[in-house]
């Protein structure tokens, strides 16, 4: 982490392209933090990322590292293919909740279960953002979305899936943490979690997973500032913010 007295420069691993995300979107924040991590670990030139289908589908325009597309939900399998072919490269997937926890749940769980030494970054904002704010597997009970217009009814629509908890039942993952982009503290914590995840891979330790509770002001239908409150209060109540797996060992709450 840079010391406050050294100022702050835009991360070198970000391209000059203006990101297409809405004002206050968590994707922009995590992109920035991820770029900072690539800079600090000096791994940009040996990193290959996998972009999802969803709001972050254009991630390859924003990072100065190699990035591949993946079919919706398949990022963990694509990352597996890349990492197995090039074991000395740093491989990450960057996925939203629909991509990772709905259509790609199988690929997500099995990559973790094999302990693929990749880094999976999971942006949980409780909605399908790109397609217009539909219900996601992580949508909160009662939350109104385009496809749960009267609120998510657990009786017929299920309850929000807690991915960290689910993956933590597996034996192979090395590092699992959930953080919340709920303000300045959340930005610092998210950066730290990403740094730990990539350090895990750099040191050849195994599978790392970071879930970021992330604001989507557009589909939360509130201001960016109020979105942070939704993340910190409503979301964090459903999705406990903590480390679940550290150095391959489950961490109890």
């Amino acid at each position: 982490m840079k010391t406050p007295t050294s100022g702050y420069q835009r991360p070198a691993s970000l391209t000059d392209a203006a990101m297409h995300y809405c004002a206050g979107c968590g994707h922009s924040s995590v992109h920035k933090l991820l770029a900072e991590v690539l800079d600090e670990l000096e791994i940009r030139e040996r990193t290959v990322g996998v972009a999802p289908v969803g709001c972050a589908v254009f991630a390859y325009f924003y990072f100065k590292c190699d990035i591949s597309e993946a079919a919706h939900g398949r990022a963990a399998a694509v990352a597996t293919g890349i990492k197995r072919a090039l074991p000395d490269r740093i491989v990450f997937s960057y996925q939203g909740d629909g991509d990772l926890a709905a259509i790609g749940l199988t690929e997500t769980v099995h990559a973790a279960n094999r302990g693929e030494p990749i880094t999976v970054i999971f942006i949980n904002n409780t909605v399908y953002g790109m397609t217009g704010g539909q219900m996601a597997p992580t949508t909160l009970a009662g939350q109104i979305t385009a496809t749960s217009p009267t609120g998510r009814n657990p009786a017929t629509m299920g309850c929000p899936i807690r991915m960290c908890e689910l993956l933590n039942t597996l034996e192979q993952p090395y590092y699992i943490e959930r953080v919340a982009l709920d303000g300045h503290g959340g930005m610092v914590a998210t950066k730290k979690a990403l740094l730990t995840a990539f350090q895990t891979q750099v040191s050849g330790k195994g599978y790392s997973f970071v879930e970021v509770l992330s604001p989507c002001p557009t589909h939360f239908r509130c201001s960016p500032q109020d979105s942070l409150k939704f993340v910190g209060q409503k979301m964090a109540a459903q999705f406990p913010v903590r480390i679940f797996r550290k150095e391959g060992v489950p961490v109890h709450a």
Binding site: V48, V50, S68, A70, A71, R74, A77, V78, A79, T80, G81, I82, K83, R84, A85, L86, R89, T106, E107, H110
Partner: peptide, 15 residues
């Protein structure tokens, strides 16, 4: 589905 996606990834990496 996963198998072909892994092929996709390996091919992306030039293998």
């Amino acid at each position: 589905v996963a198998a072909i996606s892994m092929v996709f990834g390996a091919s992306v990496a030039g293998a």
